[in-house]
């Protein structure tokens, strides 16, 4: 919890409060979010495995157990995990380093900060071709994109196959995602740093702590709520990743992830039940990440 929060409170709690003002939103969310999740859940438990099924029957979790033996599903699932790990770690680290560099204030900070946010403004529908070019896999002669830049910097040994090699494909796909989100993470961490009262730093300094120790023992622990927040935001973006994959590599086996496979199963194979089951798996994964966090947020607010 950041200390600055403590003076505001929960306002007024009464039986009805402002209930009626929120009611329209409650209804909308009930229908469009939960109603439609329920619809999807319902389909996922039925045998609507092709558009020829007109009166679907309840078949329990058959569609889910079927997924376990589906090689494409496990492949997409594994890809998603790889992508998630690299994307979260990469974005966290780069955003954190950027925050460290800016944290003490520096001339031109505003410029750096805003430019670092620009990637958030552009969609991957627009950036797809550019990223595909940048991640061209040709080595040595005829290299293009990032491999060409590496060659010019005499770093040819770093040249990569990017997403066309099965070993590196998902790690490479994480790169554009890191590019897009690290500015946002920087902003969150910067807010975290600036939210730490100066006296803490000063006190440590008076005690004769080195700068490194101040960071390690005084500042970093204060950032753990920010860290958690960032983790959640990135985690749920990662589980749902779709535009980025479609924009850069298209529906290619090697970069398959759950959201893309779900799209194919639902709309190309018209296997609605299986598609819905995959959607529920994505939702479940998001829920596992998000629900504990929401509980944590709720709890920590009670202390105020």
């Amino acid at each position: 919890m950041s200390k600055g929060k403590s003076k505001a409170h929960g306002g007024i709690t009464s039986r009805w409060g402002g209930f009626f003002f929120v009611l329209p939103s409650i209804i909308a969310v009930a229908i469009f979010v939960y109603g439609m999740i329920a619809w999807t859940l319902n389909i996922s438990l039925s045998n609507k495995n092709s558009s020829a099924v007109h009166n679907p029957k309840f078949v329990g979790i058959a569609n889910f157990t079927g997924l376990i033996h589906d090689e494409r599903f496990t492949h997409a699932f594994g890809n998603l995990i790889k992508f998630t790990v690299v994307f979260i770690a990469g974005t966290l680290i780069s955003g954190f380093i950027m925050a460290l560099l800016l944290e003490k204030g520096i001339k031109g900070e505003g410029v750096f900060r805003s430019v670092y946010l620009y990637p958030m403004a552009i969609s991957f529908i627009a950036m797809g071709t550019v990223w595909n070019w940048l991640m061209n896999s040709t080595h040595g002669e005829g290299a293009a994109g990032i491999n060409l830049i590496l060659a010019k910097l005499h770093l040819s040994f770093l040249q990569s196959d990017w997403y066309v090699s099965p070993k590196s494909s998902m790690y490479a796909m994480a790169l554009p995602a890191i590019w897009q989100m690290s500015g946002y993470v920087l902003a969150l961490f910067l807010a975290g740093f600036r939210g730490i009262p100066d006296d803490l730093r000063e006190a440590a300094r008076v005690d004769g702590a080195s700068e490194a120790k101040i960071y390690r023992y005084v500042l970093f622990p204060q950032l753990s709520p920010t860290f958690l927040t960032v983790l959640i935001i990135l985690g749920h973006i990662s589980m749902k990743v779709f535009d980025l994959i479609i924009g850069i590599s298209g529906k290619t086996y090697i970069t398959d992830v759950l959201a893309v496979y779900m799209w194919q199963v639902t709309f190309d194979f018209t296997n609605y039940a299986k598609g819905a089951a995959i959607a529920m798996v994505i939702l479940l994964m998001v829920a596992i990440v998000v629900i504990p966090y929401l509980r944590y947020v709720n709890k920590s607010e009670e202390y105020n």
Binding site: R72, H75, V164, S165, P166, S169, T252, Y253, I254, D256
Partner: peptide, 11 residues
């Protein structure tokens, strides 16, 4: 298509 793509990528 996916089978061919998988093969091309060495999968």
């Amino acid at each position: 298509s996916a089978a061919a793509g998988k093969y091309l990528s060495g999968g």
